[in-house]
Write a protein that binds this DNA or RNA. Structure first.
Length: 382
DNA sequence: GGTTGATAATCCCCTTTACT
DNA sequence: AGTAAAGGGGATTATCAACC
């Protein structure tokens, strides 16, 4: 059932297209791309995103759904009008017949694979429509379709705010401090090599995360040689979201964490020039690990810490926080604590690699807790 | 300076692979 | 065979950037 099979130069394979509608698309327009079918036109658009695998993946998903839906309605991209768009949006919220469109998560080639897990939430529908709007404006430019029906759409339902609510997802200082000392507890004697390795790896991952506030993928992608010394000072060169290159100062503690971790890996304390091996590694000590695995590792560690704190009869609020915590919390925690320790907003924005200062300043609001707590010292009767 | 559109990331569930 | 590690796919969320 799948329409677009592969990335790269291979053209997509089109499987179930009603013969009656072929070639309707180009009769009125002058195409500026070489495509024979809707699927090929879409593939040409997708090819623009080859360098961004995540984006490519989500855009393929959305466009594939549209193509499959069009085929089921005997429509083409060029035949898509405002009314068809309304029907498609309705379809996204509840794809029917379900046995044709909805199914469990399966590899794409699997016979049970279906385009949907279920109907899409309003937020996801908004996302889908935004992507398809981009597709259509490209296709108009390419001369493949006559107009962009999304231009006619002024539906409030897709104007859902994508502004995040206040950021509160971070660990307060006492929780972090307890957590870090828990992480550094010595293991008992007679531990397997593997247990020691995993213990060291965890310490490094959390130290890295807390000190430099990386995104998960930035950690997973990091190479040893990205830590560099110039003019006697150590920096971390990181390629962040949007392929943005940044250079972040390495705190002293980070160098210590790195040296300790490299010792476990049987490497010199300091990375060599252009050392290409991954920083965070799988159990074999060589391969890197994907962001997904890193995500799980962090999540599991937080959960184990929650168990441990519960065993100690710790504060239930803290236990709950640890249970909820995700890798993103580490980034928030790091930035928030840096703000609290007086690092200036401008430098903070720089090292967090936020393009806009107001993104960073949102983290300052989380100081409200502290503010509130301090305010309690102001009493009528001392 | 706020809104909205564009892009890419995070997070979760499930499957596959690798290792005793 | 049984278990944990790693990977795939997709929904949802965060951030960036262009536009009023």
């Amino acid at each position: 059932m799948s329409v677009i099979e592969k990335r790269g130069s291979d053209l997509p394979v089109e499987i179930s297209r009603p013969a009656a509608t072929t070639q309707l698309a180009i009769s009125t327009t002058q195409a500026r791309i070489s495509a024979a079918t809707d699927a090929e036109a879409v593939a040409a658009w997708l090819a623009e995103y080859q360098e961004s695998p995540q984006t490519w993946k989500s855009y393929r998903r959305e466009t594939e759904r549209l193509l499959l839906w069009l085929a089921s309605r005997q429509l083409t991209l060029n035949g898509m009008d405002r009314e068809a768009l309304r029907q498609f949006e309705q379809f996204l919220s509840d794809p029917q017949p379900a046995e044709r469109w909805v199914g469990p998560s399966r590899p794409r080639q699997h016979p049970q694979w279906r385009p949907f897990r279920g109907g899409l939430s309003p937020a996801s529908r908004r996302q889908s429509l935004i992507i398809l709007q981009g597709l259509f404006s490209w296709l108009v430019e390419a001369g493949w379709v006559g107009h962009n029906p999304f231009r006619l759409m002024r539906d409030k339902s897709r104007r859902l705010s994508n502004q995040a609510p206040g950021i509160e997802r971070y660990l307060e200082r006492p929780v972090w401090e307890w957590f870090w000392q828990w992480l550094n507890r010595p293991l008992g004697v007679e531990q397997s090599d593997r247990a020691l390795y995993e213990h060291a790896r965890r310490r490094f991952i959390f130290g890295f995360a807390y000190l430099l506030a990386p995104r998960v993928s930035e950690m997973a992608e990091a190479r040893m040689g990205d830590f560099k010394m110039t003019e006697g000072r150590w920096w971390w060169d990181v390629v962040g979201k949007g392929s943005k290159i940044a250079r972040v100062p390495l705190p002293e503690d980070m160098l210590m964490c790195l040296a300790a971790w490299r010792k476990v890996l049987k490497l010199d304390a300091k990375p060599a020039y252009q050392e290409q091996s991954p920083v965070i590694r799988a159990l074999d000590g060589q391969r890197g690990i994907g962001h997904n695995q890193l995500y799980r590792l962090i999540r599991d560690t937080f959960n184990q810490a929650a168990e441990a704190l519960e065993g100690e009869g710790g504060d239930p609020t803290y236990i709950a926080a640890l249970r909820q915590a995700t890798p993103h919390w580490l980034r928030h925690t790091s930035i928030t604590h840096q703000a609290q320790s007086g690092i200036s907003l401008r430098h903070l924005a720089e090292s967090a690699r936020h393009a806009r200062l107001d993104t960073t300043s949102r983290y300052l609001h989380t100081e409200d807790h502290e503010w509130h707590r301090e305010q309690q010292r102001h009493r009528l009767v001392p």
